[in-house]
Nucleic acid binder design. Structure first.
Lengths: 208, 208
DNA sequence: CAGAGTATTGAACATCTGTTCAGCCCTGTC
DNA sequence: GACAGGGCTGAACAGATGTTCAATACTCTG
């Protein structure tokens, strides 16, 4: 047997890492409660007992996945927006896991969402000051909505991919969607105020 | 005991309906594989055996939920967009279930997504012809992206709600996000072409 | 080489899972 | 009043699940 302790921290092919990767993939595609410890162990070529030896419990394994994904996103230290863009076009298992975590409303996922929103709000405020972002009546709501729009293709990746071209997770497909989004955000989608004013009208009559 | 066969189809409080409602809620909040037949039965005040008696199996129950949710959305026959808007501000269990179904990539959910995109594309094309929607270079991608933006707050409802105001699923909260979205779509978010052209640049240099 | 410590395993556990089945209760029909 | 039929149940089963535990293999330190 090669691959001893010497190369461990470098190559990241320890049993521990293999288990984490297998869990990431399976948790992402089958869901957390839909994944058995035995299945993860089998994928990693390892006994179920080793999984709990390394991570304490299934819950511990899930948290290890959370930490790994979040760190790999945060590692792109700059604007979280760009780092997120990389993840979006990068490894699909991480994407799927992140989507699942956001839907399951993990504590870690919630913190990440809040963090991204925070940074985005600052980024948009800067842009507003510098004149390349339009002013708004509710900068908080705009940041939240903008971030959820960014995240949407991530969460709905399968459906979007299927309708936009054969291969989901294909770069070209993601690019097509991203361009369409940028067009809407730059030029606007609606040419006049009909929907916005209609909305304002409804809102005013509904509100006390 | 009242509530016999006579009023069944009208009042919809049969054990069968109670089971379906309980399943809808639990499936939505805990996930499908995270929900046990026994838990659904307990919520409905019914024995586990009755669940399988009515729906054949757990899978049958899930399909019944699919059908129910999809029908309740499609029932708003007009533009699916508006019907979806109602659902978004309406019963939360249905929202959560729909989000879960979209992420789990159910066959039914995929069909629904495709259907909404189709109708939206037509709707946008009409608007383009009538002049209140701006032209685009890729009408398909725009429709897909637009729909995923519509669906985003639905899927990420918990996080959006938490950051936008105390009560998630509160109407006021949803309204705040919707207004911010409409502002971006009407006036545009970015005041100049810097991001769009930067994107085009990257796309051209990346592509062969 | 002896010993400490970690990685790793097979077998076993209690519990929970979806599902089956024989039978009860209730209502409407002849 | 006997009969049929469907809603409904309790108990049971086989299998899967998360987790435990004692024991083995391995590597590093002295």
């Amino acid at each position: 047997m090669f691959n001893t302790l010497h190369m461990r921290s470098a190559s990241d092919l320890t049993a521990r890492a293999r288990i984490r990767d297998a869990a990431l993939t399976r948790f992402g595609s089958e869901g957390i409660s839909g994944t058995s410890v035995r299945a993860v162990a089998a994928d990693a070529g390892v006994s179920p007992a080793l999984v709990v030896h390394h991570f304490g419990s299934k819950e511990g394994l899930r948290q290890a996945c959370d930490d790994y994904v979040l760190d790999s996103i945060r590692s792109g230290d700059e604007a979280a927006t760009e780092a997120l863009g990389e993840v979006l076009s990068a490894a699909t298992p991480v994407r799927r896991y992140l989507a699942r975590a956001l839907l399951d409303d993990t504590e870690a996922a919630g913190a990440l969402f809040a963090e991204i929103v925070e940074r985005t709000q600052v980024w948009l405020a800067d842009g507003e000051a510098e004149g390349w972002v339009r002013p708004t009546s509710d900068s908080r709501a705009r940041a939240v909505t903008y971030v959820s729009w960014l995240l949407a293709p991530l969460v709905l990746g399968d459906h979007v991919g299927r309708l936009l071209g054969g291969d989901p997770a294909e770069t070209a497909t993601a690019v097509r969607g991203a361009r369409a989004g940028l067009e809407m955000l730059t030029g606007g989608l609606f040419a006049d105020d009909r929907w916005l004013s209609a909305f304002t009208e409804i809102d005013r009559t509904t509100r006390p």
